[in-house]
Nucleic acid binder design. Structure first.
Lengths: 333, 333
DNA sequence: GACCTTCTGTCCACCGTTGTCATGCCGACA
DNA sequence: TGTCGGCATGACAACGGTGGACAGAAGGTC
């Protein structure tokens, strides 16, 4: 049978209560007793039953990570980051895929909380902006932290990067290379980051006194196929852009494919840049100039904020970075 | 406060026990009572506390998925597949990254089980072949299913694809195109699939009466960088291969990059093929000919076997598929 | 000597379910 | 008519911990 704290207390020669105190790192336990108990725990390889702790106590030592994202890389980084922080804290992580489009998402989240009694929740974009979910969490008084929220920033603590500035930086980089006709592919309309990146692109154009031309801007869905489609339209224009800025790497990959298919010499005939710096970016040809989004670090920091449990709302902004690779060059004259 | 089954029983006018019976779909509840209880459950939006169920009952309605894999795509597919089956079954999934190299992996898995009392475990390659873990699971009598195990096949139920046949098929495809000098990049030595794929390559060569030449075979680690390194060595040979078969798509991407860097015309100067058919394969240039590994389906089937809970050992083998894209062509003469 | 702080133990209620066992009812069968 | 088996339900004790109240001993401080 699995050992229980009763067994531990017997071996250590103390009461169950004292074992419980040690387990929960409470005050008023002498160094010596603590060690005895810890030895007994190790000897039996005792692990407290989560179920019993949750039922009896106020904490559950579990948090939930809720996401709905189509990019495996992104999710993987988010999971890894949060996971790392949870390990440090000795807290279990429940990863919960979901569907922002679902009309009963809030109910599902509520159900998850009722069932598992998680101590806190981390929301990843775009679930960050699902108001019914936020309301549900607030109604229950569950602390939560959002990763890259798009709206309602005052509502909760969050971590994010500066999408506007990053897109501005990237656009400015292209302008500095000499590009004047720069295409832009917008991200998925569900994600507020999409708007921010578009705004950064416009801001950079404005500052450089370049005209904003709507025909150089195409919608996209953050996936490869929409990148291809947008690139085809852009390159069919009478004066096609000499550079294309895709709002993420997957779409940039689509642009590269279209360019290859058309026999363009890259990057001479067309510069292509992406956003995120997923593993994909460096595996394409030519390797993609992109914005490094510190996804893993954002996730790690988000978990940190959750455990910090400060009452006031905190926003942590992590730095991005331009990653210059071989997919950009001055335009040919 | 959260409703409990006591509240439900009060509203439905039955005992707690009867509510419990309804919740667990047990026999001996009249249709009428069942409906009354279900109405009360709906009215209160009641969700049973997992903690209490686990503590009191024999089932925990949770299973664990344990993996250690470096490919986000692969993990994502595995997670998605298992997840889908769990939803159908109303079971919660604990995704557990791990490290096969860690010497106390078995202890960690044991701890996980003690803490969470999961009902079953799904092991994904290469954790499938960590004997101490298997022993730990058997000692505890926890049912488990393995996805693509490499060894000890009789030990548990499993799902897998035919790696040998798939590699054989792919190699035969290259031979049929006219290739005679075919390079091969082995996968990570931790994964038994690596050996199987190599064996399939050899088998196809043998059948075609082509000599097996060790210098055309290079080690790899299933990642982009090792693909690049291996490709450089192969292409520097006096009589370089006209086709390279990488044991997975990531390494194939590395090969493509090296080929581009050397200014080779693809696929005329060099055919490249991969294995897995991850999203990456279709996003590269040229789009990669590869073996579609039914990862998601394998995961889904694995969860199915676990819930099936037949006592005898079952092996399900899922079909693979050659995906022919533009990265292969007859060699130039 | 009185009093405070630290450490440990005892005792008991309680968390929200399920397992066990008892019980009442009804119809079938001898 | 008495007995037996299947069905439907309920009472009550678990499950393995936490939380709180309280007592008592040891040691330090005023």
């Amino acid at each position: 049978m699995r050992p229980t704290i009763k067994d531990v207390s017997a071996i250590a020669g103390v009461s169950m209560k004292t074992v419980s105190r040690v387990l929960n790192k409470q005050r008023y336990v002498s160094e010596e007793t603590r060690e005895r108990v810890e030895r007994a725990v190790a000897e039996l390889n005792f692990k407290p039953s989560m179920a019993a702790r949750i039922l009896a106590g106020k904490r559950s030592f579990q948090i939930a990570l809720i996401y709905d994202n189509h990019s495996p890389h992104y999710i993987h980084q988010i999971q890894t980051g949060v996971w790392a922080r949870c390990i440090e804290e000795g807290v279990r992580l429940l990863a919960q895929p979901s569907d922002v489009a679902s009309c009963n998402l809030a109910a599902e989240v509520g159900g998850l909380i009722d069932q598992t009694q998680v101590d806190g929740v981390i929301l990843s974009s775009p679930v960050t902006d699902a108001v019914p979910v936020l309301e549900e969490l607030e109604r229950r008084g569950i602390p939560y932290v959002r990763i890259s929220p798009g709206t309602d920033h005052e509502r909760s603590s969050s971590v994010s990067m500066d999408d506007v500035q990053a897109a501005d930086d990237m656009t400015s980089h292209l302008i500095a290379l000499g590009h004047r006709r720069i295409g832009f592919i917008i991200g998925h309309p569900n994600h507020t980051a999409s708007d921010l990146r578009l705004f950064g692109y416009r801001r950079a154009l404005d500052r450089a006194k370049l005209p904003f031309e709507p025909r150089y801007v195409r919608p996209g869905l953050f996936d490869f196929a929409s990148g291809e489609a947008a690139a085809d339209v852009l390159l069919d224009l009478p004066h096609p852009p000499t550079a294309i800025f895709a709002s993420n790497d997957d779409m940039a990959a689509g642009v590269l494919t279209v360019a290859h298919r058309r026999g363009l010499a890259l990057p001479r005939d067309l510069s292509v840049v992406g956003f995120d710096d997923t593993a994909l970016a460096s595996q394409l040809w030519p390797p993609l100039t992109t914005v490094r989004q510190p996804t893993r670090d954002l996730a790690y920091a988000a978990a940190g904020l959750l455990f910090g449990a400060e009452d006031e709302v905190v926003h942590r902004r992590l730095p991005h970075e331009l990653v210059l690779r071989a997919s950009t060059a001055p335009p040919k004259v």
